[in-house]
Design a binder for these strands. Structure first.
Lengths: 234, 234
DNA sequence: GACCAATAATTGGTTGACCAAATATACGGG
DNA sequence: CCCGTATATTTGGTCAACCAATTATTGGTC
């Protein structure tokens, strides 16, 4: 009841503007590839200020939905109505990701990273991964928290995969992952040695160019948190 | 030579500001969880206008790197230096994705969607996928382009996976995928019937709750474009 | 010293005016 | 009618001033 009241009040003007831009596109008033009306016109039409329209446009620009040309106008991406609709829906539903979906997706991306790292790593990649592993080990041996070092180890593997889209997607979900891990206290104490050995195993398989084994070891490494996420899902 | 000249001139002020904010964080001037200096102070310090600082902050906010509290200040996410550094690097390297990485990653996400759709689909999901397939078929039968209908079919499968993170990531790469497909003229004519039959096969396996088969059929469905991307990579 | 209320200062959000670049229009000549 | 040039208009980008909310400071009381 009170929660419903709060939710209505938290609705953001920028999101309302995005909804209205979506309607313009859905109604066929503006087609993919065409220009939006000028900012001033949109502000007038939506009954808001120009700076709010700009904020909405900036947000949609980051998602590839709009493309602004200075002193010229703002064009809707020519990617088709279905893609536009799906993306705008996604923009408006941000921060509604459940923890289980986050973890499952992380597992998928990490497995693929490990597999591709085994396929494509260079000597320099191996050096970087080893360095990250060494830093992780130093923390674990001292019984200190090693979240940063753990994450760096995973990032170095993603870099060794030579798939920068994969790495981007991993980085994009990282804030929510880390925030949820902290909130839910996922990284308990006492499992550092086990995780360290799993890291070593994964690295060995990457060095030896064994993609399937690396992928399996990565999955095993993340199995606990996956099971945890099933229980804690909300 | 001339290209190098152009590149320097195209460097965006917002990105330069982001680089400077990154330095503040890397140098330990600002730690994760702490407040940035006020916008006016940053503008003065960086020798730019406040509206440019705001644009940079807005962008970093969308990535979960910063969190702005009205009339209070802007806090750096407490997700650790490694995550922050990785994310800021990613923000600054936008639009440098090679086509092969894009397609490989798409294949990975689509396979998982099909697999999870087979595991978790509801009757309503099946209805939606069938509807999308029917629309696709109508276009193929007429020999018309069916990019929109194809994409909608894939989106409906992602929805049936019940993993909204997976769906978000698929949407996020879609603009670049579609743009590259258009640019490289990936969707030639003449393969509509084959693709239609592959869609039908995938749907059958989702209906029958056969996750491994659905995943394999999806991979097979996307094999051509994957091979194409290896040749066209740049 | 701790606590509270009032006031002042600071902060991000917003506005209208101005600026520089792009586009549209008008005009003259062939 | 077409083309080129000059001018006017429009557009997104930027700025300083203002606004509303938050935080810090001040002064009084116990």
């Amino acid at each position: 009841m009170l929660e419903n009241l709060q939710k209505i009040r938290l609705e953001k003007p920028v999101d309302k503007i995005i909804e209205q831009i979506r309607s313009l596109i859905q109604n066929g008033d503006i087609e993919p590839g065409q220009k939006l009306p000028p900012e001033r016109k949109l502000a007038e039409r939506f009954g808001v200020g120009r700076s709010q329209v700009r904020d909405a446009i900036r947000k949609l620009e980051l998602y590839g939905i709009l493309k602004t040309h200075p002193q010229s106008g703002t064009v809707v991406a020519g990617i088709g109505l279905v893609a536009l609709e799906g993306l705008i829906t996604d923009v408006l539903e941000l921060d509604h990701h459940d923890f289980n979906s986050l973890v499952k997706t992380r597992v998928l991306l990490e497995k693929e990273s490990a597999k591709e790292a085994a396929n494509r790593r260079t000597e320099e990649d191996i050096t970087q991964i080893k360095k990250a592993l060494k830093a992780y080990e130093a923390k674990i041996v001292q019984g200190l928290p090693a979240v940063e070092e753990d994450l760096l180890f995973h990032i170095k593997i993603a870099e060794a995969s030579k798939n920068n889209v994969l790495k981007s997607l991993m980085m994009i979900i990282t804030p929510e992952i880390v925030t949820n891990y902290n909130r839910l206290k996922v990284c308990g104490t006492g499992e550092g040695i086990k995780a360290l050995n799993e890291h070593k195993e994964i690295l060995k398989q990457i060095v030896n160019q064994e993609p399937e084994l690396a992928s399996q070891s990565m999955e095993k490494h993340l199995q606990n948190v996956l099971e945890f996420s099933l229980k804690m899902n909300h």
